[in-house]
Each structure stands twice: as structure tokens, then as C-alpha cells.
Amino acid sequence: MSKIIFYNDTGFPYSVIAAAIRSGLLPKDRLPEKHELLGVLKRCGIGKGDATVFNLGNCLAMWSRGDGDMTGKIVKSFLGLFRINDYRLVKLEYRKTFLLGAGVLLSKFPGLRVLGHQLIHRAVNSVYRKLLETASEKSI
């Protein structure tokens, strides 16, 4: 079975969430609870992304801040060198919102972590349905 690699370059791990949905680590029939979402995000980090590829069950995910065109080409050309073709690369175009940025920032401070996580949860929930549609598409 070919692997799906979700990636985005908007500085937040939307690709991790999409991969988790596709792999069944996050629910497909409802919005995730805060602990479910944070449980997945904490496995890979909530930072801006250094293009490390993470394995989330059936799917892989990577993210960075900017340079999405370049990171996509690196993946394709590197795997091409080894004649590996059994994968699908899916770019996500979800942007990092102000609310999300604020949540990530606040989550770095021990006293404000709970508030930060709350904001991240709210911001992700606002795009979760769209992420769910993308991640569940049969064509990918």
C-alpha cells in the first residue's frame, strides 16, 4: 500500500492532524477533544516545523515555515533517486491564524500553557471539518 505524505509550509502542524485523521488517531465523526488533539500534537511538537517527517500510523507528515515548494521537490527527487514511487504527496494550504499563533506562543509559558492549549484547540476545531474532508478524500 502506498504511503501518503501530508505536508504544509504554514508554520503549524496541520499535516500532522490530517495524517492523524487519516490513520484513525483522531476522530472522523466529531471534533476532537482537547486531550486527543494535544496528545497527537505533542508527539511531533507544536513548533514552526523543521521539515522532519513523522510517522503517524499509515501516513507520514511534515511541516515547515515557508519553502513548501522546495521541501516538496526534495521529497520527490530524493525518493526518485531510489526509484520509490509508491507514495502520494499531499500539500495542505491551511494558514496559521492569529488565534492559533497566539495559542502556540502562550503554550510556551508555563503559567499560560492551559490558555494556549485552549486557543489551539479552538483554532484547530474551526478548520477541523475541512481537514477531515481533505484527509478522508478517497482519491488520495
Binding site: 504511503k3 521539515a51 517527517v53 510517522n55 507520514l60 526534495i74 530524493f78 525518493l79 531510489f82 520509490i84
Partner: peptide
């Protein structure tokens, strides 16, 4: 290859892909 002055991006992608695809 060109990496826009971000060798860590290239290294991270290549090394982690190698791990996941058993290269």
C-alpha cells in the same frame, strides 16, 4: 541541490525519509 541556505531542512527531510522508506 540548492537548499536556500537551510541545510537543516534538506538534512531533516532526507534522513527521516530514509528511515521511513527503509533506505
Amino acid at each position: 541541490v540548492g537548499q536556500r541556505g537551510k541545510p537543516h531542512l534538506l538534512e531533516n527531510i532526507v534522513n527521516s525519509l530514509a528511515e521511513h522508506f527503509a533506505i
